[in-house]
Design a binder for these strands. Sequence first.
DNA 1: GATGAGCGG
Length: 143
Amino acid sequence: MFLVRKLTARNPTGNVRFFCAPPSSTPSPNYNTTNNTTTTNNKLFVGGLSWGVDEKSLTEAFSSFGNVTEVRIIYDKDSGRSRGFGFVHFSTNNDARSAKDAMDGKAFLGRPLRISFALEKVRGGPVVVPRLSNVTDVSRRNN
DNA sequence: GATGAGCGG
């Protein structure tokens, strides 16, 4: 006598089904999931500048696409010349995005512009220091 | 006197 035991454990559809993690969208409001670039800020990083570009020329170049609140070109602290990149602040991120979409890759004073949304780096910004003394405070709060 | 991807005066 043979006890043939069917060990084929499969669902009614006949296909072995693997349960993976559901594709959850990354809930990060500060980052765009399509390109992993920040779109919430209205600060633009403008790179690829020519060596002789100053702030007023950039202001006149970007004021046509929105309200430019601040333009800052990073100069070298020693030689005083331009380091080839700067930052353009707009009043709203819609203007910043339209200006980036209009001026990115465009040539300006002989060099093509490399525009992208600026990082959250602010001089003297909110540097989060991990205070480990809070851990002891939490443990001591339990009395 | 120069340089050419990047993220700040």
